[in-house]
């Protein structure tokens, strides 16, 4: 397990659909895989008492987030028989409707890929030092709260 190196998960701006498509395509050579599970987080135009969210500006304590994601990755690989997992999170401004999180896990059978993907999403939301500054339509801002 120790041969895996920490990977940079951060992506400046929104994650384009073409990037996701290319990532799927790259797995076609790995013919032992029978199932992929993908989670895409999209910026939602929440309407609150202060107004409507038009974008989220993400910042992170990158060094700590990358270390933490590495330890989550090690835990997930030891818990589930998955072939691979990939995590990409946006930094900077992402407009409502754009993708800010891409989690991709693959295994021989669907159940493990789906369970691993779900656990990665739950853990990264709770454990990675990332903050979302919600920009409202009147250009004021508020800090996102994860539920």
């Amino acid at each position: 397990m120790s041969e895996r190196k920490p990977k940079n998960i951060f992506h400046q701006g929104p994650i384009p659909a073409t990037f996701i498509a290319e990532s799927i395509q790259k797995h076609s050579t790995q013919i032992g895989i029978g199932g992929h599970s993908i989670f895409l987080g999209q910026v939602r135009a929440d309407v609150g008492e202060n107004g409507k969210v038009k974008a989220i500006d993400f910042t992170a304590f990158e060094e700590m987030a990358i270390e933490k994601m590495h330890s989550i990755r090690e835990d997930i690989f030891s818990k589930y028989p998955i072939t691979c997992m990939h995590v990409h999170h946006s930094l900077g401004e992402v407009l409502a409707g754009e993708i800010c999180l891409f989690v991709f896990s693959s295994s021989a059978h669907r159940k493990e890929a789906m369970e691993a993907c779900n656990e990665i999403v739950e853990r990264l939301k709770a454990e990675l030092p990332i903050w979302g500054r919600e920009i409202l339509e009147d250009d004021s801002h508020q800090w996102k709260v994860n539920k």
Partner: peptide
């Protein structure tokens, strides 16, 4: 030293 408010990534 870094001061970290509750995380809100994802």
């Amino acid at each position: 030293i870094a001061l970290l408010p509750p995380f809100s990534g994802g």
